[in-house]
Computed example of a mutant assay.
Amino acid sequence: MTTTDLHRLTGAYALHALSDTENTAFERHLAGCEACAQETAELSATAARMGLAVATTPPAGLREQVLRRITTVRQETPGRPAQALAARPGPRTRRLSRWALAACLAAATALGGTALWQHQEAEDARAQARRAARTTDGIAAVLAAPDARTRATALAGGATATVVVSRGQDRAVFVVSGMTSPPGGKVYQLWFDEDGTMRPAGLMDPARSDQAVLLRGSVDGASGMGITVEPDGGSKEPTSAPVAVMTFPS
């Protein structure tokens, strides 16, 4: 594969459409080609913006509606017509039904603790889904803002990073592709850079190499952002030298 061929792979790389062999060759090329690094970062940010701009959030009550209807709709037995299920029960069937009801009540009593635990698990899942929806909406609002400004750069290890800032929204989004995993027990933490003073701006997902992160808090007077490696859970202030520092676009 020639250098000319590699220059033409920026779009396919940004969309994760390369084979393993092509991906390895292009990442080697990317480490020494500033033009391709810049173009790849911009294409990755554009792809993220387009995807999030058309994302839709399910209606708030959809999950509860589906779960409620499951309990009221009876499943037909395979191979039996629906009319057979609606047949009028005889005396023996009614006696069996009473025994079945008693068994169900006993089981419900015995499993009461499990039901409460499952209810709490469902509540936690719903709360997590609401938080995720708010984050997605916040990212989409920044990326689609008329005054959104973008700045891209190449990071160590071949990663490409883009920061998108909307002064009107007073928020910023960090988009990264190909980020190496942090050391065990560590996490990448994002910071607002206010004339050299770092203000916490959230954590990256250590399990994902490609992600978009809505920086926590308003841009306010920050002129840029930084990334450091911190203990799991993050720190109140940086405890290590920055992995990267990026100036916000004007």
Score class of each variant (00 low, 15 high):
T3K: 04
D5Y: 11
L6A: 01
L6N: 02
T10A: 14
A14P: 01
L18W: 04
T21Y: 03
T21Q: 08
T24N: 06
A31N: 10
G32I: 06
C36T: 06
S44N: 08
A47L: 14
G51N: 12
P58M: 14
A60R: 09
G61T: 14
R63T: 06
R68G: 00
R69T: 00
T72Q: 13
V73A: 06
E76C: 02
T77G: 01
P78S: 04
G79W: 12
R80I: 10
Q83K: 13
Q83A: 11
A86Q: 13
A86V: 05
A86S: 10
A87S: 12
R88S: 05
P89A: 05
G90N: 11
G90Q: 09
R92A: 09
T93C: 01
S97E: 14
R98Y: 07
L105H: 10
G113D: 02
T114D: 07
L116T: 13
Q120I: 09
E123R: 15
A132L: 13
G138A: 06
I139S: 00
V142Q: 10
L143Q: 06
A145R: 02
P146K: 05
T150G: 01
T153I: 06
A154W: 14
T160K: 04
T162S: 15
R167G: 04
Q169L: 03
D170F: 04
D170N: 13
V173T: 07
V175P: 00
G178A: 06
K186A: 10
K186P: 00
W191L: 11
T197M: 02
A207E: 13
S209F: 05
L215H: 08
G217W: 13
S218D: 15
D220V: 04
S223M: 05
I227L: 15
I227Y: 13
V229P: 00
P231N: 14
P231M: 12
G233L: 15
P238L: 03
A244M: 11
